[in-house]
Amino acid sequence: MSQLLAFGEVLVDWIPLEFQRQGKIDIPIYGQYPGGAPANVAVAVAGLGHKALMLGQVGDDAAGRYLRDCLQHQAVNCDFLLSSQDYATPMAFVSLDAEGERSFSFQRSNTADLKLRLDDFPNQVWAGSGILHICSNTLTEDNIANTTFDLVNAANKAGMLVSFDVNIRLPLWQNTEQLFQRVIQTAATSHMLKLSQEEWDYLSKLGQVDDLAAVLFEQGVSLILLTDGAADVQLLTANWQTSLATPTVRVVDTTGAGDAFTGAWLASLIEQQICDSATLVEAIEQQAPLLTALQAAVVAGALAVTKRGAWSALPSAADIQAFIHSKE
């Protein structure tokens, strides 16, 4: 049975719920939410009825135990989510503006997720077919970047698809000069990329390239998904491209919307057994399977912004299908 392997950080998102007035000061009241982009995607895929495994490491602390318990309650396999007695679980504090757009402040220095190596995982990780999903947050420091490169190479040798959500969080990068190089290096061994328009523009400027799509396709990327908030989502391949409008919804919180989009996209590929390079090439030639996946992804992303939080906002398969049928 095909499955998703999500590699990267699992962390606690502290999200402001309200403010309480104490004297002359407004005190923010935060809610503790499980998060981390790869973990969000794993939960999304599991919630849509497919096997999802979390590859990563948390601290052997209260936050790490909380996250493991949350993942297991969401039917995510945690056999390869390791615990460290020496390093802490990472955290992020989320701020929301009046439109629900978020910004992040991270506590992720010398944390457990950064200390992994490929040989920390048994070879059985690569048994069976499936998709490895990664993000650029595991490229920010030398050790975890090398581990990411090793994992991607192992997935390719095992015949898996590699999905790369660029997902740039600039506060995590001490050296942005390495950012473009590492993203391109990872893209060169990935089959599918997902970027926001903001990330696209930033990378184009950082790398001083006029046609980022051409650069990525020359590196061997097969497919690119380009999102831009409420604007149309673009699907690019070397030979054709298309776009799909996003539904109009009331935005409450954009946290995790991109991961809901990605999770639904990957779940649809797994559902259609598009889990290796040959089946992806066939799907690109046929186009229709990818348009089916794109529609599910766009709807999932839209529905996710109508609720607060990351995991709590993820739509079910029934939610997605009901929305699609309501528009027919």
Score class of each variant (00 low, 15 high):
residue 193 L to P: 07
residue 41 V to F: 12
residue 22 Q to I: 13
residue 196 S to L: 04
residue 304 A to N: 12
residue 40 N to L: 14
residue 249 V to Q: 06
residue 72 Q to M: 15
residue 71 L to V: 03
residue 207 G to M: 10
residue 259 D to Q: 07
residue 49 G to C: 08
residue 169 R to T: 11
residue 294 L to W: 09
residue 53 L to R: 14
residue 105 S to T: 14
residue 4 L to Y: 02
residue 171 P to A: 08
residue 64 G to T: 09
residue 158 A to N: 14
residue 175 N to E: 06
residue 187 A to K: 06
residue 237 T to H: 11
residue 1 M to L: 10
residue 175 N to V: 00
residue 176 T to Y: 01
residue 203 L to A: 09
residue 75 A to F: 13
residue 147 T to C: 15
residue 205 K to H: 10
residue 95 S to H: 09
residue 160 M to N: 10
residue 196 S to D: 02
residue 268 S to K: 14
residue 14 W to M: 15
residue 257 A to C: 10
residue 191 H to P: 05
residue 83 S to P: 00
residue 310 A to E: 11
residue 197 Q to W: 04
residue 67 L to V: 10
residue 211 D to T: 07
residue 228 D to K: 12
residue 179 L to Y: 08
residue 104 F to V: 01
residue 68 R to Y: 03
residue 283 A to S: 13
residue 122 P to G: 08
residue 41 V to M: 10
residue 176 T to R: 12
residue 190 S to Y: 01
residue 80 F to G: 00
residue 263 G to D: 12
residue 144 I to K: 03
residue 270 I to W: 05
residue 296 A to N: 15
residue 221 V to Y: 03
residue 180 F to V: 13
residue 59 G to H: 03
residue 115 K to G: 01
residue 277 S to K: 11
residue 47 G to F: 01
residue 95 S to P: 00
residue 54 M to F: 03
residue 67 L to M: 11
residue 304 A to K: 13
residue 184 I to A: 03
residue 10 V to M: 11
residue 130 G to L: 06
residue 156 N to R: 15
residue 261 F to W: 04
residue 198 E to H: 11
residue 120 D to Y: 07
residue 247 P to E: 03
residue 152 V to N: 04
residue 180 F to P: 04
residue 264 A to L: 09
residue 298 V to C: 08
residue 27 I to R: 11
residue 37 A to D: 12
residue 171 P to D: 08
residue 148 T to F: 03
residue 55 L to D: 13
residue 76 V to K: 04
residue 17 L to H: 14
residue 99 E to W: 01
residue 128 G to Y: 10
residue 295 Q to Y: 01
residue 280 L to R: 13
residue 124 Q to N: 13
residue 285 E to C: 09
residue 249 V to K: 01
residue 324 I to M: 11
residue 5 L to W: 13
residue 150 D to C: 02
residue 323 F to Y: 13
residue 244 L to I: 07
residue 100 G to V: 11
residue 275 C to P: 00
residue 314 L to R: 06
residue 204 S to L: 08
residue 286 Q to T: 05
residue 269 L to H: 05
residue 46 A to D: 07
residue 19 F to G: 01
residue 83 S to M: 12
residue 175 N to Y: 00
residue 161 L to S: 14
residue 322 A to P: 00
residue 140 T to P: 04
residue 211 D to K: 13
residue 281 V to A: 15
residue 321 Q to H: 13
residue 222 S to Q: 13
residue 292 T to V: 15
residue 287 Q to R: 15
residue 58 V to C: 15
residue 211 D to W: 06
residue 205 K to V: 11
residue 113 D to C: 06
residue 124 Q to M: 05
residue 7 F to E: 01
residue 203 L to C: 07
residue 169 R to F: 06
residue 241 Q to W: 07
residue 110 N to A: 14
residue 295 Q to D: 04
residue 99 E to F: 10
residue 320 I to R: 11
residue 36 G to K: 09
residue 319 D to Y: 11
residue 287 Q to F: 08
residue 175 N to H: 07
residue 274 I to M: 05
residue 233 V to Q: 05
residue 55 L to I: 10
residue 28 P to G: 06
residue 238 A to G: 00
residue 303 L to K: 09
residue 117 R to M: 08
